[in-house]
Structures are given as C-alpha cells and as structure tokens.
C-alpha cells in the first residue's frame, strides 16, 4: 500500500465556508449585480443583432476597408475578404457574427478598463507589486474555474460568458500598458515636466503616445485571447462558432467541429492582421531614420 499524504485538517470545513460565503453573495447581491450589468448585455445584444442584420457584402467591404486602412497592402486586404467570404460559404455567417459581437464587446470592456488600470500600475510601484502576482494567477488559473462563480451569479447566459471572457483577456493589455509607460525615455518625460506640463499633460502628450506601440501589442493579444475564449464561453451559453464546436463534440460530428474551428481560425487571422498593422503604423514615426 502506498503512503497517502496525511490529512492534516479536514478541507470540507474550508470548502463549505467558501461555498457558503459565495452563496451568500449570490443570494444578497446577485440581482443587484445583474442590474448593474444589464447595459452590457444590451450592448452585446444590439451589437449581435446589428452585425447579423448588416448585409454580408457590407460587412465584407467594411472589414476589407479596415484592413486596407491599417495595412495599406492589397494582398492582405484581399486575403481578409476571402477568409470572411469563406466563413459565409461554410454556412457559418450568423454564428461568426455573434462570435465577433461577443469578442468585440469583451475586448472593448477589457481595453477601456485595462488601459486605465495599466496607467495606475505604471504610476505606483506598490500597486504594481500587488497587481503582478494577481495577473499571473489570472493568466494561469484554468479557465473553467472562472466559469463557476460567474454562472452561479448570473446563471448560464451571455453575461457570465462576456465577463469570463473579459477576465481571461484583460491581463495582457494591463501588463503591456504598464510596461509601455515605464519604458518611455525618462529624459523625454523630464523635459516636458521641466517645461511646465501638468501630470495630465505629461500622460497625454508623452507617456501614452510613446507607449502606444506597446499598448497596441497588448490590445492585439487581448483580442486574440478573447477570441480563443469563445469555445469555452459557449459552454455557458455564449452561442456562436464556439457552440458549433461544442455540438460537434457532443454529437461526435467531426465535420461540424472542424468547419466551425476553421471559421474561428479565419476570424483570428483577420483580426490579428488588422490589429498588428495598426500597431506597426503607431510605431512608424518612432522608427523613421533608423
């Protein structure tokens, strides 16, 4: 017989305490939280309906125009358009649109909260030393573990899906905003302060513009992580391409899973291209003359 690790104390008590505490939050604040997050749900719903209502050729043209304005490259533009058309041909258009809606909504929330958090982190070493381990935990904790509390709070549906996606996707944009601002040449910052800039002017005129390429890299990573979350989020009711993959697993239909998977890959490639091209353009003036 092998020696098992001795039971030093009974973990059931600890587990019960955590569960009870969480249940108490659900019972007392569940409704309130749901109310607070209603606008988010409305935003997501409207976005999804709008994207599905939009005629496909308009969507394809808009994506092509975005790619071109970012990359200034006909080949990249054409490949983005072809990939989006392929998604339509595979019969995945509506699913792809709801996936894009979820991804965009989650990315917008992650970026609008992540950048200010990153800025605060760059200002305070103490905040940074507390936030870094937290971000490490967020990035390594298995995704499924996030799902449990969110589902308990809101029940299966789009709100827990989008919140879990935001939590999963937000660390890169926080980290890279912090890093980008900390990497800005100290003498440039000193110069603008010496000429009488307020802390706000220092942030808006120097720190953010010079950190922009790094921040854009963070936004890009956040977008990609939000997209990679859609399959798992579909388990709690996010719908879209992820739901097709999930159904493929449940019904053992290789074709359904494979086609939806290819759709996700195409979306990832399109959005990665656009985000990266914008990042490079943000960097252009910093690199001239090199």
């Amino acid at each position: 017989m092998t020696d098992n690790f001795p039971e030093i104390f009974d973990t059931r008590g600890l587990r019960f305490a955590i569960d009870d505490g969480f249940n108490w939050i659900v019972a007392n604040y569940g409704d309130l939280l749901e109310q607070i997050l209603m606008p988010l749900l409305k935003l997501l719903g409207t976005l999804e309906i709008f994207l599905q209502w939009l005629p496909w050729y308009v969507t394809v043209s808009v994506v092509a125009a975005l790619t071109y304005s970012a990359a200034r490259d006909l080949k990249a533009t054409a490949s983005a358009a072809v990939m989006l058309l392929a998604i339509g041909c595979l019969g995945l258009w509506n699913d792809a649109m709801s996936t894009i809606a979820l991804m965009l909504a989650a990315t917008v929330v992650a970026v609008t909260t992540g950048i200010p958090l990153g800025i605060f982190m760059a200002r305070s070493d103490r905040l940074r030393s507390m936030a870094l381990p937290l971000l490490d935990i967020m990035q390594t904790l298995p995704i499924f573990v996030y799902l449990i509390p969110f589902v308990m709070l809101f029940g299966p549906g789009k709100i827990p899906a989008i919140l879990a996606t935001v939590f999963f996707a937000i660390p890169p944009v926080i980290r890279l905003t912090d890093l980008g601002i900390r990497q800005v040449d100290g003498e440039v910052v000193e110069a603008i302060v010496a000429f009488g800039a307020t802390p706000r002017q220092k942030l808006l005129k120097v720190q953010i513009p010079l950190a922009l390429p790094t921040i854009m890299a963070g936004i890009n990573q956040t977008t990609m992580m939000a997209l990679s979350m859609v399959v798992i989020a579909s388990m709690i009711g996010a719908g879209g391409l992820g739901y097709q993959v999930l159904q493929g697993i449940q019904r053992l239909e290789v074709s359904r899973g494979l086609l939806a998977g290819i759709g996700i890959v195409f979306l990832a490639v399109i959005f990665d291209r656009i985000a990266q091209a914008y990042g490079r353009r943000a960097q252009k003036h910093l690199a001239t003359g090199e």
């Binding site: 003498e187 440039v188 110069a191 009488g196 003036h285």
Partner: peptide
C-alpha cells in the same frame, strides 16, 4: 511652480529629451 517652469526657467538635456512623435 508650473508658471515658473513655463516662463521663468528652461532646460536643455544631455540626450536632448525631444518628443520623437
């Protein structure tokens, strides 16, 4: 202090400290 830095004193830096953008 802001007014003093804006009008009363100015500075030139070793590695220039120019805004690259």
């Amino acid at each position: 202090l802001l007014a003093f830095r804006r009008k009363g004193i100015s500075m030139v830096f070793q590695r220039f400290g120019l805004l690259p953008h």
